[in-house]
């Protein structure tokens, strides 16, 4: 059976597993919408939970521990995205070659459309519509004025709607 350590089972952090199982899918789906890459999304979410586990004594006392994990995951995702964009070859690969694997075809269309948005626009769209954060909280989290968030949301919505319209027309043609 398994690994043979012979050691007594390590004490698990109380509450960590429940928080992890309850929020993993939601966070991974949000990060996937931003990164357009399911494997990278799962990597950053797992890394965020790993860091949360290391500080669980403190984080479990927060009013909303998942908010902390989400922020860490988003910071990691932003670094990941910057790295991908910096490396032009990978960026091309990311935009054109990486296949999108989702169980529902409509979600593949959405992810493909989100990938075409500018990163800031995509980020506020995901935070506002998939994470349910109000504009003021997004502004605080991104450290930008409220007006900037509203402007990014406006342009992001317009571009996303155009891409979805085009995709639909493409399907019907």
């Amino acid at each position: 059976m398994g690994t043979a350590t012979g050691a007594p089972p390590r004490a698990r952090e109380p509450g960590f597993a429940d928080c992890y199982y309850a929020s993993y899918g939601r966070l991974a789906a949000q990060l996937n919408a931003y990164l357009g890459d399911a494997a990278a999304a799962e990597d950053v979410v797992q890394e965020a939970f790993l860091r949360a586990w290391q500080r669980w004594n403190r984080i479990s006392g927060y009013e909303d521990p998942v908010a902390w994990i989400r922020r860490v995951a988003w910071n990691l995702a932003t670094s990941h995205w910057r790295r991908v964009v910096r490396e032009a070859r990978l960026a091309r690969h990311h935009r054109e070659a990486t296949s999108i694997e989702m169980s529902v075809p409509e979600n593949v269309t959405l992810i493909a459309a989100l990938r075409k948005l500018r990163p800031n626009h995509r980020r506020v769209i995901v935070l506002h519509y998939l994470t349910d954060l109000p504009v003021a909280e997004i502004a605080a989290e991104l450290n930008v004025p409220r007006g900037t968030v509203l402007s990014w949301l406006h342009r992001g919505r317009a571009d996303l709607a155009a891409h979805l319209r085009n995709a639909k027309e493409g399907e019907n043609a």
């Binding site: 789906a29 919408a33 989702m102 169980s103 409509e106 979600n107």
Partner: peptide, 9 residues
Amino acid sequence: YRDIAIHDF
């Protein structure tokens, strides 16, 4: 997407 995609992960 919000309702369904969580089950993909």
